[in-house]
Design a binder for these strands. Sequence first.
RNA 1: GUGGCCGUAGCUCAGUUGGUUAGAGCGCCGCGUUGUGGUCGCGGAAGUCGGGGGUUCGAGUCCCCUCGGUCACCCCA
Length: 423
Amino acid sequence: MPESFQAPIGTRDVLPPESARWQALVAGFAGLAGRAGYGLVQGPVFEDLGVFQKVGASTDVVRKEMYDFEDKGGRRLALRPEGTAGVVRAFIQHRPTTPWKVWYAAPNFRYERPQAGRYRQHHQLGVEALGSDDPDLDVEVVSIAADLYASIGLRRVELGLNSLGDATCRPRYRAALVEHLAARAGDLCDEHRTRWEENPLRVLDCKRAPCAAATADAPVMIDHLCDPCAAAFERVQVGLRALDIGFVVRPRLVRGLDYYRRTTFEFAATALEGAQDAVGGGGRYDGLAELLGGPPTPGIGFGVGIERILLACDAEGAFPTPAATVDAFVVDVTGGDAARDLTALLRRSGIAVDRAFGGRSMKAQMKLADRSGAAVAVLVGEAELSAGTVTIRRMAEGGGQAQSARDDVVAGVRRALAEAAPR
RNA sequence: GUGGCCGUAGCUCAGUUGGUUAGAGCGCCGCGUUGUGGUCGCGGAAGUCGGGGGUUCGAGUCCCCUCGGUCACCCCA
């Protein structure tokens, strides 16, 4: 038996008709981002391993989920686990003028066990805006994500908001948190008992009961913000309220990557059962460009998971897969020349046309015409062939049909399409 | 990385305490006389029962291994 293959673990094929949803989603996002002045950025799907290691040394994403490999030249590379690091690397490499606002739709890779809403290759829509620390930019970025959900009819999305402070107040807060944790280290969960010092903030976000109990009365960042950070956080909230974007402040929201500063946020789809309800998230990363060897440059962005939002749409019955249809279907039982020539002619006139192949019976071709969703069928039999005509049939029930000179087929089909009741 | 459940036609699944040529629905293909779809009727193609090994007179049905799927934990999109 010949060996056969299937898609690698945690990956999947997106085929028609479902793929039409992707097209519609990405096109809609491109419109939203474009109208806000964001241009498309297309970066490599893999980067120098160091780009990601620098950015998240203490995070799960980098520590245990990296899809890394060595190429034939001995370079250590990694399939990108998230979008921001590569974009910042590109920013540093090309030094575009700021503010630099870009969007992307691209695959990300994480080596972990797949489950509902989680894949080794998943796809994110996102934006990144570098070069300004104006909190109104935070509002713009968050609003693009919120508008995306709204534009596809996703209603049950909850925005969680937090501030993680900056280089001034974060260390002070961190010291207070460390003091709190040190007194309770023995009570933490198995993983954090020994690792809590590496990234104390993450303990706040740990879902396990021991950590939750030990941090119940722990100090939170937003109570320790310095004046500029507090002012910025306030300005962000004012802006979101002004734009009618609902949110809840979640002081324990920490997020997976450790480069975040000040504003961080996460969108959760409440229609999704189980743990995979995060449909998007992001935040400000003012120290990141410097960390990657570039000039100090503030930045903020978000990523939303395409698979996740489609899953959430399914749960809400929103954003259904658009029906794939053509305008017309050419049926030819005279040998194929007419089908070949008429489909090309009609398509070149801007009409969406399909046809049958393989010299099938008229009955079979009509069945395909019906299934194609075409509003009209263009029939060519021996009679039409010798008369130099075509039969244009409206496929809707009781639609009727009429002869048309073959030379007028384009106009005839256009007319029939205009008259045909929408199916 | 750890654990639960599952693996029978393209899809969704039935398959009695292991027993003759493995089934259904949907889908697909054809036919229902003169060139016409959607409904209906009839017929047809299609499965080495995930793979390998074992027990047995005999295994889709029991045991082991393996691969894959799925869900959950951790974490995240």
